[in-house]
Structures are given as structure tokens and as C-alpha cells.
Design a binder for these strands. Structure first.
Lengths: 222, 222
DNA sequence: ACAAAAGTGTTACGAGTACACCCATGG
DNA sequence: CCATGGGTGTACTCGTAACACTTTTGT
């Protein structure tokens, strides 16, 4: 089966930069390519947009197919379309970024059995295509949005402590925060609420558990 | 001549939302469609991406071809790709927005003789495709960026007075600003400088003329 | 001299920052 | 009773907001 057009058409893909924080390190999800071009090297998950599928749906589908991840926060980032960024044909890629909470880290490599792994953002391997450039722009956007939106909460699992949130923010910004000021700020956002439960983890005082408020997903501050 | 692929490929276009401020009103540039679909109705300028042309270059080319505009500020906005947004075939559109200074308002309708006109954002006609949705998102982005970047200066002509800048900001935000505070803020951005010249326009004190500093094009504040 | 827009400083308020001690729990 | 992280309030600082009069020009 083949498809014919009067004018040349580019191929269209989505690529997804999936962030998480694991062991106090910001990481991105990469898959190892099995087929040329760039066979064997690491790349962002993604793939071709189907002809009757929305862009968002494509990103979600590719992510699910290649990693098993589902129900996570996704946002369009930027569209990359320089001629020559793929050696096979003209490819235009709509890049998305996604945030995975720490309790959904279990990956199921796709049916094509390619390897899937979390890489610390500070120790990325060489990436295929222009994926390094895309990753850099995604990092920039993530750190920007951490400052003026509640996006950081998308990294948290369903129940979490205030100290866990603080640790997350410190990891991503690379700077320590004052505990009292951070809590005052976080609670003033009106985005989380106590669950009433507590988390006892060791030989010390248990912490109150919080959850994201219904309806408050990601909002801008200021 | 025709082009054949193993899998279906969507068509890819750019659409450009061109803003300007004229007579104290925020306006966008529209062109009247001559061909189906939506023949006769108004739409955003734009068109198909050529196979060896970058997305930015496509937006600039289409804008020049259809309106004669050149050398203006352009920025990628968002990519729209819902199936069905164009009745002919699957079309994915990378939307850009552009800002035109008040001294470049002269339009040269494209060679296909379609009408080109500035419409106040508050009195748009019915638009073709999903262009109303795109326009709304562009307006949102514009007003957002006015708050945290120097993008507003892209509306100014090569030489301008501080009062003109203030008037511009008031028109877009819809709110009056304190003259002294506004000037303090504007000058603190370190983005403009005096030309040494003055503008005498009527029976009153002439205003100092300013220009954008070299190298400072658009930067974020905060 | 008057009409019209240009230009200019000081005070007040509020948000954000700095800072140190007591609490609850398990071992 | 001790070790460990959890939890809390106040004082200061700096940036933003409020506010009104003098200057320059053309008629």
C-alpha cells in the first residue's frame, strides 16, 4: 500500500522528553535505537503521527507503547523541523515533555524489545538526531516553569510529605531552600491538602501526608 | 509530478498571527480566502512548508508573499494538528506570532490579489478553520509575555517616545499605568537609549526620542 | 499668558528573605 | 534518653505602588 500526493509532504513525529527525579537526581527517559539511522545509540521516545490521530494522542500512545507509562502529565514543548535533522527524509517533530511521579518508575520496554533507561540529566550519552538540543530546551522550560507554576507537584506520587516536595525543588534548582519559607510558599498556593494520614518511616517523628487538590492540576503563579 | 510514500503523510503548514497597534487599538492581520475551502471568509496568513525549507523560513516567506511585510519579529507559538481541522486532508500547522511596528503598516496584498486587512482584536470577523482558536491562544501569549519580557518594544518604530511606549502597554493590557513608575521600570530594563533627537509634534513641549539598544532584542525579565 | 503634553522624587506598603528552637517518634 | 527528621513565628529588607507639581513649547 502506498500514498501519493501532488506536492512533497514531510513526515511528522512526536518526541517526548520524560523527566523524573530519582535518588535526588533529575533524570530523563531514553530508548536505545535498534534500527538505522543511529542504530544502537540512545534517543528520545517518540514516533510517527498516525493519519487520524491528534498530536497529543500520538505522544501518549508512543510513550505507552515504548515504556508502558500511562496517565502522566504531558505538555507540548516546541516543534523542530530543520531540513536534514533526519537523514532519511524531511521529518518535523512536535516535542512534548512529560513528568513522571516517583511511584511510576517501573518501565516496560516496548514490544520491539529495545532497551529503556533513566539517565541523569548531568550524564547523558550521545543522543541521536537533534535530541540533545531538544533535551536542553526541555530542561530550560522545566526549570523556568518550576519558578512560576505548580508544575513541580506533577513529580509527586499520590501522597507525599512537605519535605519530599522541598527536596524535589532543591534537586531541580540545585539550590537549598529555607524550610519555613518554602512551606509557607507551598501552602499559600492552595494546591495541596492534608490527607489526615502520616508517614512513619524510621526512628523519628512521622510526617503529615498531603495530596494534590482535586481540580488543581497545573496553574500559574503571579 | 507526484510524490509517493509507504505511509500516509499529513500536510504541514505555518500560520502567522500578526499583531500591531494602530490608533490605540490592538489589531491582527487577516487575508480573505479566494479558493475553497472557506472561500471568501477571512483567515490567518500562512501556507504549506516547502520540502527543503525550515519552519521559520516558511513563516517569513508566506508573510512576505501575502503581505509584503519583512524584517519583523517572529516567534513560534504552538502546533495545531487535530484531525479534521482542514476538510481537504490532514493538516498540521505550526503557528507563529509576529509583531509589526507602527511604521510598517503598509501592506502589499499578494500576487494572488487576495484582500489583506487589519482587524481590531475586539471585532474579528468569523475566521476559517480553527483560526479563531489560534488567535485566542496568541492573544493570551502576547499579553503574558508583555508582563515578563521586553517583547512590547517590538511594536515600536525605529525612534519613539516614552509616552508612546506607555500608551502601547495601556492599550494591550487595557489598564492605565502610572507615568513615573512606568518610566522608571522601562528605563531600568536597560533595553533602550536616547537618540539625542526630539520629537516636536504640536503646540507643546517636544519629547525625547529613544531607540532600541543594539543587541537587546527580546529578553526576559525576572 | 495659556493650553497641552513632557518630565521628575519621595513615601508607604507588602511580599519575600533571613533566622533558631521545640516536637514526636523508635530504638 | 538520645538520635533523627518534623514542625513552627518574627523581624528586616527590598522592590513595587501611590501620589502632584514644574517645565517646555507653540499659539
Amino acid at each position: 500500500m502506498s500514498y501519493t500526493y501532488l506536492h512533497p509532504h514531510p513526515a511528522v513525529t512526536t518526541d517526548i522528553i520524560v523527566f523524573t527525579v530519582q535518588d535526588d537526581v533529575l533524570k530523563v527517559l531514553l530508548i536505545q535505537r535498534l534500527a538505522p539511522p543511529h542504530e544502537g545509540s540512545w534517543a528520545l521516545p517518540g514516533g510517527f503521527v498516525e493519519i487520524e490521530e491528534s498530536l497529543d494522542a500520538c505522544a501518549l500512545r508512543e510513550l505507552h507503547e515504548e515504556t508502558g507509562l500511562e496517565g502522566i502529565y504531558l505538555e507540548q514543548l516546541y516543534t523542530f523541523g530543520e531540513p536534514g535533522r533526519d537523514p532519511r527524509e524531511r521529518v518535523i517533530s512536535i516535542a512534548y515533555f512529560a513528568l513522571v511521579p516517583s511511584d511510576k518508575l517501573v518501565l516496560q520496554p516496548g514490544s520491539d524489545a529495545s532497551a529503556v533507561a533513566w539517565y541523569p540529566i548531568s550524564a547523558l550519552p550521545e543522543l541521536a538526531f537533534d535530541h540533545e538540543k531538544i533535551t536542553n530546551i526541555a530542561c530550560q522550560r522545566l526549570t523556568d516553569k518550576m519558578e512560576y507554576s505548580t508544575i513541580g507537584l506533577m513529580f509527586m506520587s499520590s501522597e507525599f510529605t512537605l519535605s519530599q516536595v522541598q527536596s524535589l525543588y532543591e534537586v531541580i534548582s540545585g539550590k537549598p531552600r529555607d524550610k519555613r519559607n518554602f512551606r509557607k510558599w507551598l501552602l499559600s498556593l492552595d494546591a495541596i491538602e492534608e490527607t489526615g494520614r502520616k508517614k512513619a518511616e524510621g526512628a523519628y517523628r512521622p510526617a503529615k501526608l498531603y495530596r494534590l487538590k482535586e481540580s488543581k492540576i497545573v496553574s500559574n503563579i503571579r
